[in-house]
């Protein structure tokens, strides 16, 4: 028996051509992870909490290795130009662990107790299967706790 011809093209992308749409669709990217609506909410929460507080909130979702705290602190050290004022939320759904890492400057405005409270609310949502909702609520709690920096409080007076 002869097999049916494969109808979908799988060409390789070169410098001049983009990959075929059929190959793009199978790419296991971030689009499949969350819907565009969820990504939009996530984007807005990250951006607004970073602007309001002057801290830099970043979110990592993925495996954290065996020593989750060490991996999260290593990621935090690489999270940008100025990790002193950075806050990293690292979620590892496979290991069921969430780590919040604050730099020295961010830690003055976000004490560990505030982080623990935000983590508690996040884990409550995660246990119910709501990753995005938990992350957004945690971001909201962290940014509320951090408040506005004194430089942004009186902008042009």
């Amino acid at each position: 028996m002869t097999r049916a011809l494969e109808a979908e093209s799988h060409d390789t992308a070169t410098a001049q051509t983009a990959p075929a749409r059929t190959d793009e669709a199978t790419d296991d990217g971030a689009d499949q992870l969350f819907s565009y609506q969820e990504l939009g909410r996530l984007d807005e929460a990250l951006t607004m909490s970073s602007r309001e507080t002057g801290l830099r909130f970043t979110l990592y979702i993925g495996d954290l290795g065996r020593q989750t705290r060490v991996t999260a602190e290593d990621l935090h050290a690489r999270s940008g130009q100025n990790p002193t004022d950075a806050v990293l939320i690292a979620v590892s759904p496979g290991q069921r662990v969430v780590e919040v890492v604050t730099g020295a400057g961010a830690g003055r405005r976000l004490p560990d107790r505030a982080c623990a409270l935000a983590v508690l609310s996040m884990t409550g949502s995660f246990a119910a299967g709501d990753l995005i909702g938990g992350i957004i609520n945690g971001l909201r709690q962290l940014s509320d706790q951090a408040g506005h920096p004194s430089a942004l409080r009186h902008p042009h007076h």
Partner: peptide
């Protein structure tokens, strides 16, 4: 290891704080 750790170079951020949670 992995694409996510190929970020900018590591910079020390002083004493780190934070929290951990499991579910």
């Amino acid at each position: 290891h992995g694409a996510a750790t190929a970020a900018p170079r590591a910079v020390s951020a002083g004493p780190l704080g934070g929290a951990r949670g499991t579910w």
